[in-house]
Simulated assay, not measured.
Amino acid sequence: MLTLAILGFLYDRPLHGYQLKSRITGLTGHIRPVSDGALYPAITRLEKAGLLHRRTEPGSGAAPRQVLELTGAGRAELLRRLAEPEPVEISDQIRFFTVAAFLDLLPDPARQAAVLRRRLAFLQEPSSFFYDGDGAPVTAENEPNPFRRGMLLVARASGEAERAWLTDTITALEAARP
């Protein structure tokens, strides 16, 4: 997720490390905050892989600033990752939202729709946070604990909203195909 977010935010414009961190934090929020200890080693790995490069610019104070910019290989890697997300990037909501945040950069509506169809297929599989003694999923209707029932109701409503959005967006993307 972090690599995808770095590549995605640098796709449009070069950024300083602090600007990049702010954008990633805005995307993932309090759910998965990014620390300097995770961000800067990831940037170094991407630089060593030839996906981005750093250049030094004068800072507003005395210290120079490191500006991060994608290379052609970085752009290609971002587009590959958007077209072919890993299974966890489909099943994990925050990771999927990271993919979705940059999916418009993928120029082919058919490939965009294919990614959304994968997420929709995942969401159509039965699931629950809780299971009874026989391994059957617990539903809001048969959950006596009011707090767990609340979790199940919220998850159901969120899932219904996401499935409706995915269906509508897939339909629109398929209608836009030449």
Rank of each mutant, 00 (worst) to 15 (best):
L4S: 00
L7Q: 02
L7H: 01
Y11R: 11
D12V: 01
R13S: 12
P14C: 01
P14Q: 08
Y18S: 13
Q19I: 00
L20E: 05
K21D: 09
R23L: 14
R23F: 08
I24S: 03
I24H: 07
G26L: 04
L27G: 09
H30T: 15
H30I: 11
R32I: 07
P33H: 06
S35W: 08
D36I: 01
G37A: 13
G37W: 05
Y40F: 15
P41E: 06
A42N: 10
L46I: 06
L46T: 05
E47Q: 11
K48Q: 15
A49G: 10
L51A: 05
L51Y: 12
H53N: 03
H53Y: 14
R55F: 06
P58Y: 09
A63E: 15
P64H: 02
R65N: 13
Q66C: 06
T71E: 05
R75Y: 05
R75W: 09
E77G: 00
L78A: 12
L79F: 07
R81Y: 04
A83W: 01
E86F: 09
E86N: 04
V88A: 14
I90S: 07
I90E: 04
I90G: 03
F96P: 02
F102D: 00
D104L: 09
L105N: 03
L106Q: 05
P107G: 11
Q112I: 05
Q112S: 00
A113H: 08
A114E: 13
A114W: 08
R117N: 06
L120M: 13
A121I: 02
L123E: 10
Q124D: 15
S128Y: 02
S128Q: 01
F129R: 11
F129G: 15
F130K: 01
Y131S: 00
V138W: 04
T139A: 09
T139F: 03
E143C: 15
R149Q: 11
G150M: 03
L152M: 09
L152A: 01
L153K: 12
L153E: 13
L153Y: 03
V154C: 01
A155E: 14
A155D: 10
R156E: 13
E162R: 14
L166S: 02
L173T: 03
L173Q: 01
A176K: 07
R177V: 12
R177T: 12
R177D: 08
P178K: 10
P178A: 10
